[in-house]
Simulated assay, not measured.
Amino acid sequence: MLRDDLRTLWTEPRPPDAPVRVWRDWALLAAGLAGVVLEATLREDVAWRPVAVVCAVWLCLLLLWRRTRPLAMVTLAFGSVVLLPVVSLVVVPREPVGLYTSGVVLVLVYALPRWGSGREIVLGGAVILAAGVLCSVMDETPFLENVVGLAFLLLPGVVGAAVRFRGTARERQLEQVRSREREQLARELHDTVAHHVSAMVIIAQAGRVLAGIDPSAAVEALEGVEEEGARTLEEMRAMVAALRDRGVGAELAPPAGVADLERLVRTPGGRLRVDLGLDGELDALPPAVDAAVYRIVQESVTNALRHAVDATELVVRVTAERHTVRVSVRDNGRRTGRGRDGYGLTGLRERATLLGGTLRAGPGTDRGWHVEAELPRARSESGAHSRPRR
């Protein structure tokens, strides 16, 4: 068991979303260099002042590569930290060398488990422990103080590992939400194909019955089969193009759509007055878009009931244009907390993206929470080869 855990840690890759360099890096570097200048100028008991200043500046510069080269930066930093005390013992015994600003190495201890691979974490952790033990041996402070100092040195690494675990867990949950959306789209694809193929079978059966009686009626039946088949291909291509992964669940109930919005907003819980407005040709939407509109309104109404404080009204607008369908949901309440997107909004944004549309959610200019979505009625590459609808 322990061997398997160690093997898993050793083969753990780096996080895929590590930024190379952001504004915080330059702010941290500026603060570190300012601390070096102030300490070197105001502190009088600095031994080997030029060497101590150069070492502190070196440690500050290493912070710029702590995400992309965590193991190398830890090795260089702690090698420098250990080298100075060793040299001071040989040349000037019992005289500590270095600035307090050199404590920026704690940032490197944090970055190692946060951004390093499993192999880098193990090797870098060994370097940190070796440096900490060596400095403790060379120091004449009591054993208990050395233990406390070593624990303080390792604390940023524990924090970095916790932050990484939390981020990984959230990303895993988001991926599960996206997977559920894809599975639901797959079920809707099943329903769409089954519906249209059933209609084609019925039309073909009717045409076969009428073929001997009225040939013209049989020709019309064949035209109906052709048109129904073209419509099926259009909708199927749009939905298959949206699905990156396939997974058909067991539930095959027809999804709710725009026609069900009236029933949805009539029972929002009694606390909110819902103003629903439907405009344009909304009767012939592709099933995937029809279901997406319903899901966006449903999730927005649910979020307003849960999170909108002092809200009294919810305005829902669904507008069908020639090539797009626009959905707008706005409440007049106020939100508490940091306002980070929940898993419901993440799933809706994933669904809108898979269908070729966009979804934005955030606070309004005055108050309330606004959800705006724009979905294409059909993909252009599919519609270009389909017959016009009757």
Rank of each mutant, 00 (worst) to 15 (best):
A18E: 09
G79Y: 04
S328T: 10
L71S: 06
T319A: 10
A259R: 15
M138I: 14
Q176D: 13
R367M: 07
T11V: 04
G333L: 03
L155Y: 15
T141N: 10
R237T: 14
F78A: 03
R43P: 00
A221T: 03
L154P: 00
R69L: 13
R334Y: 11
V105R: 06
G364C: 06
G160Q: 12
P156E: 13
L134S: 12
E145Y: 08
R94Y: 15
L9I: 14
R21T: 12
E262D: 14
V193T: 03
P287D: 12
L9Q: 11
R7V: 08
G98F: 05
T8R: 15
R295C: 00
F78R: 02
M73Y: 08
M1Y: 14
G368C: 00
S80W: 01
T232Y: 01
L29D: 05
V258I: 07
Y100W: 14
E374F: 00
W58C: 10
R263K: 14
A151E: 10
D260C: 01
R335I: 07
F152T: 13
G257R: 03
R306D: 14
G342D: 14
G280P: 11
R340C: 00
R14H: 01
D191Y: 07
D25P: 03
G79C: 05
A238H: 05
A186Y: 11
S386K: 03
R326P: 01
E226G: 01
I296Q: 02
R208D: 03
P388R: 15
A18W: 02
A111G: 04
F152H: 13
V193A: 03
A292G: 06
E321A: 07
A111V: 12
T302I: 02
L354E: 04
P19C: 11
G357E: 11
G347F: 04
H195R: 09
F152G: 08
V316C: 07
A256L: 15
I203R: 01
D17P: 02
R94H: 15
P113A: 04
G157C: 12
R326Q: 12
A206N: 11
V82T: 03
A27C: 11
R43K: 03
R3Q: 12
V315H: 10
V90H: 10
V265F: 07
E228A: 07
E120T: 05
H385G: 00
L89E: 14
P19W: 15
L150K: 01
G337K: 08
R340M: 03
A126K: 03
L64C: 01
T232F: 02
E350D: 13
D4W: 06
G125T: 12
V109S: 01
E188C: 00
P15K: 10
M138P: 01
V289F: 08
A27E: 08
L134H: 08
E44D: 13
V122G: 02
T267R: 13
A77T: 03
V22W: 10
S216M: 11
S102K: 02
R180H: 09
A169E: 12
V265L: 06
L28R: 11
V54Y: 06
N332E: 10
R266I: 00
A311P: 07
W115N: 06
V92K: 02
R244M: 07
L150Y: 07
V315W: 05
